[in-house]
Amino acid sequence: MLRIDRATYDAIVAHARKDHPDEACGVVAGPEGTERPERFIPMLNAARSPTFYEFDSADLLRLYREMDDRDEWPVVVYHSHTATEAYPSRTDVGYASGPAADPRTHYVLVSTRHHAERTGLAGDDVEFRSYRIVDGEVSEEEVEIVESYLFGHSPTTVVYD
């Protein structure tokens, strides 16, 4: 299960909407060894493409060096699909199964295919789903949104299946 706070969830969705129709991507870092996505880090999609995303190689080095200095790791790696469902593609699975990719990462997929624009109407949510990807096997996991990490895991949670 991925447990994520409301502000971070909203920030990922806002980033995906802003970059639509290009894919948006980024990381939520947390203390190394934990499952707590605490620090939202939007990344530039170096491919600037509606069908592909990649972290620029120099940006990637800077990002990991900074996380390393702070004893963090990427709890979540997110990206958006802008014309297809929020499900990992074959390319996504290939990279996530790479020999240096950590299978403990939560891969969040957001799809802006129906709701790139915020309308304020009911059902105006983008698809937001989370997966584990291990050796080419994709398994979806539950996403639980908590109001805040600052006060521990408060009981006022909304669970999305």
Binding site: E23, C25, V27, A47, S49, P50, T51, F52, Y53, E54, F55, S57, A58, L60, L61, Y64, R65, V77, H79, H81, T82, A83, T84, P88, S89, T91, D92, G94, Y95, A96, G98, A100, A101, D102
Partner: peptide, 28 residues
Amino acid sequence: DVRFTGALDTQVKDGDSVTILPAVAGGC
């Protein structure tokens, strides 16, 4: 990034610092 410096043939020497990272990319 060694992709731009000769990949596995890249010259290294004492005092250098090497970093190995997972590439992060994908697509729909």
